[in-house]
Amino acid sequence: MPDLNRQIDAVFADRDILPEDIPHLDLYMDQVLSLFEQGLSGVKRDPSDKLLTKTMVNNYVKEGLITPVRGKKYTRQQIMQLLCVYHLKQSLRLSDVKALTGREDADFEQCYARLLADKERMRSFIPALLREHLPADTDDANGRLALCLSLCEIAVYMRRLCESLIDSISE
């Protein structure tokens, strides 16, 4: 399983935009896009992928996932809100993301900082857990398919847990 070990290491070596990387000044759209592009480019599957676009941000505002921009600049809180949307939309439906981020009562900077601390903690034990419990026979097509099915099922369990937590918001 040496190739899988390398792949696990690569996946868990992702970099994040740190709160100290975000200026305490309001940023124009192009500056926000550059911040995402520079800070998160290591997670791209393909170098030509776009992590965030003007259209995406405008749609997030229109759909209520982030608070409306005043003028043409985005506040630090809105950038933190965008970072939360970015992370959530990878696994959840936009309506679920909106239930979490389309709120005035959330401290997005605090939530994002907690995410980073949780990710750091998860990086310390999840790779070893995967190495211990994943099947080692991933050299053929059947082994890769079976492993991908198992990994996707884990992702489904995690998404369903998130959905259950979101559903409890309105109760």
Rank of each mutant, 00 (worst) to 15 (best):
P2C: 14
D3P: 04
L4E: 00
N5C: 05
N5G: 07
Q7G: 10
I8M: 02
V11W: 10
F12P: 04
A13F: 06
D14W: 13
D14L: 11
R15D: 12
D16F: 15
L18W: 05
L18T: 03
D21I: 02
I22P: 00
I22L: 05
L27N: 03
Y28H: 15
Y28P: 08
D30W: 09
L33R: 04
L33C: 07
L35E: 03
L35C: 04
L35V: 03
F36K: 00
E37V: 05
E37I: 07
Q38E: 14
Q38M: 13
S41A: 14
S48K: 15
S48N: 14
D49I: 09
K50A: 10
T53R: 14
K54V: 06
K54Y: 09
T55Y: 12
V57G: 00
N58F: 13
N58P: 08
N58H: 14
N59W: 04
K62D: 06
E63K: 09
L65W: 00
T67E: 12
T67N: 10
P68H: 08
G71Y: 05
K73A: 04
Y74K: 04
Y74F: 11
R76K: 09
Q77P: 02
Q78P: 02
M80Y: 11
L82E: 01
C84P: 01
C84Y: 00
C84H: 03
C84I: 02
C84W: 00
R93S: 03
K98C: 01
K98A: 02
A99L: 01
D105L: 06
D107F: 02
F108K: 00
E109R: 01
C111K: 10
Y112V: 02
D118Y: 15
K119H: 12
K119W: 14
S124N: 12
S124D: 07
F125H: 15
P127I: 03
P127F: 08
L130G: 05
R131L: 05
R131C: 07
E132P: 01
H133P: 06
H133F: 10
L134R: 08
P135L: 14
A136T: 12
T138D: 02
D139I: 03
D139T: 12
N142G: 13
G143Q: 05
L145C: 13
L145G: 11
L151R: 07
I154A: 12
A155D: 10
V156Y: 11
M158S: 11
R159W: 07
C162K: 13
S164C: 10
S164Y: 05
L165I: 11
I166N: 01
I166E: 01
D167L: 08
I169N: 03
S170P: 07
S170K: 15
